[in-house]
Design a protein around this nucleic acid. Structure first.
Lengths: 93, 93
DNA sequence: TTATAATATTATGATATTCTAATATATAAA
DNA sequence: TTTATATATTAGAATATCATAATATTATAA
């Protein structure tokens, strides 16, 4: 009997199944984090950034920290961190 | 600069972003493997099984081996194996 | 208070996903 | 051959995703 919760885990993968969100998480893991930084880094619209970050937030992968008018997003999911580490370590895609 | 190929990697996650397919891969990693076995194990229709296996095949996660009228699917993706191992090892979902 | 900057939300159209039902294909058995 | 078994494919409906455009919210600055 497997220990994997297929529904919960598949929701994490669903959040990571978009190249923009995957890049966001990779970026947020070791860099600056306010929405404007993400917009500039990834070169996508403000609205799209906000919506993608919202999906990552709702799946429990990131959480927001408000600083004045800015919102700083940080990765807060052990599994996701381990997976990104795995991806950066190996050359398997 | 990240080593991650976001498009390729997100396609793997997309294939794993469905609870049925995730369970399929987990099952195929250490058990019998013909389509009927998958149908019985997961309790889904033959057509749905075939379509999900096709998605896993097209994303390079599994490959088929024909034996008479049966088709045996096997996992053939290092990253996927590592991720499933990670999922089974830890209790993070 | 008004204006500005940063972010979030909503509406909408285009495309993608996933299921079921039906049909097709391929191998083996009778 | 005909029949049965195993698997694959297709069509279609319901739902989900994603980008853009427009608007709303919130916090600070002037």
């Amino acid at each position: 009997m497997s220990k994997i919760d297929y529904i919960k885990t598949s929701e994490i993968f669903k959040a990571l199944s978009n190249p923009i969100r995957l890049q966001m998480v990779d970026f947020l893991l070791d860099d600056e984090c306010c929405v404007t930084d993400v917009v500039n880094e990834l070169g996508i619209s403000q609205s799209a950034s906000s919506q993608h970050l919202s999906i990552l937030k709702n799946s429990g992968i990131v959480y927001p920290e408000k600083h004045g008018t800015r919102t700083c997003y940080k990765v807060n999911n052990k599994l996701t961190e381990e997976i990104i580490t795995l991806l950066n370590k190996n050359n398997n895609a």
